[in-house]
């Protein structure tokens, strides 16, 4: 089966005060119908930028696709016109943004905001749009939708607003839903509800989900496959369970072991957390011909510091961009 979305050798350049930088550098990935793929990595590694590129929403005048293709349903989104991209955003690919509070319009009721999407993209009349809005609110588990549909965003809790955002994103029955840190600002009990919702959605409608997060636990619970991003490049990719059990990139290993996780049975043991020293390099260094993780990596040698690792592919479908992947 052909992939629903296929990104190949994507390079995105940002024009900054200090010059041009490859914020995404030679990234390839595939997304299949109905699956959940997760992007993880520290702040500034290009997770949101990848999502924005797929949505055709790169920052105006600052970001552009320099090379590569984004194939969706036989069409290259990297070359599509603005009008066509807008159409795709309304019908096929939708996104839940990192900051839910700023993405709802405070002067319209939530019902009006959902109905507006339906009228614009699905040509529904007012009555049909309203009853569909009620169905969607019910689908995202807003209790008693009839009494909430005329509420304004400020009358809802953070978790409810986030569920409204999901309802809006679902209004057009997208083939791909991109969720960028959809639960960061929410209580874990609310996060659990949103995750359940997304999971059911994937099962029921076959919508493919790209989940962007910094929480490995969330990845383990939600996604089948994951991509670890580091400094605009793919560090590692593969099946979630396999990567967590045996990461093939020192960065992935660091990301997993530096976090204190809840475990099945807590003991008195509390060893020091593994530290990954240093921080992500600055954007201006993203393009260098080296392993960009080498400045923080315990294993780095001269080769690491002088040439960009090629991707090593393992039998279990794990890929790692580390010169020493085999020895790990």
């Amino acid at each position: 089966m052909a992939a629903l979305l296929k990104v190949e050798n994507l390079r995105i350049e940002l024009t900054t005060r200090d010059g041009i930088a490859p914020v995404i550098d030679d990234l390839s990935l595939e997304l299949n119908a109905g699956e959940t793929l997760s992007f993880v990595g520290e702040s500034g590694c290009g997770k949101s930028m990848t999502a924005l590129a797929i949505m055709g929403l790169l920052p105006d005048k600052v970001g552009r696709v320099a090379s590569g293709t984004i194939m969706f349903d036989g069409e290259d989104l990297a070359k599509a016109s603005d009008a066509r991209l807008r159409e795709i955003r309304g019908n096929d690919i939708s996104m839940i943004f990192q900051e839910p509070m700023t993405s709802l319009n405070p002067v319209y009721t939530i019902g009006e905001q959902i109905a507006e999407v339906l009228r614009r993209h699905q040509n529904m009349d007012q009555a049909a749009a309203r009853s569909r809005a009620l169905e969607l609110l019910d689908a995202v588990r807003i209790p008693n939708p009839k009494s909430r549909v005329d509420d304004y965003p400020h009358q809802m809790s953070g978790g409810q607003r986030q569920r409204v955002m999901i309802a809006i994103a679902l209004a057009c029955e997208p083939k791909i839903l991109i969720a960028d840190e959809p639960t960061t600002a929410l209580d874990v009990t609310v996060q659990a509800q949103i995750f359940d919702l997304l999971r059911d959605l994937g099962k029921e409608t076959g919508t493919a989900i790209i989940l962007i997060t910094h929480d490995m636990g969330a990845v383990a619970e939600m996604a089948e496959r994951m991509i670890v991003m580091y400094a605009g490049r793919k560090a590692e990719e593969g099946p979630v369970d396999q990567i967590i059990e045996h990461p093939r990139h020192p960065y992935t290993k660091g990301l997993i072991s530096c976090v204190p996780h809840l475990v099945a049975q807590l003991s008195d043991d509390r060893p020091e957390l593994t530290e990954v020293r240093g921080i992500v390099p600055s954007l201006m260094d993203f393009g260098r011909d080296e392993c960009l993780f080498s400045s923080r990596c315990e294993r780095a040698d001269d080769k690491c510091r002088s040439s960009r690792p090629t991707e090593m592919k393992f039998k279990n479908d794990q890929h790692s961009a580390c010169w020493q992947a085999k020895e790990l």
Binding site: R141, Q160, V188, Q193, A220
Partner: peptide
Amino acid sequence: SAVPSVDKKRREATKRILIPGD
């Protein structure tokens, strides 16, 4: 029960308890 975990044993042993509403 709502905390997602990388520990497979914990995930298998934990039954999520939902507390709907506010």
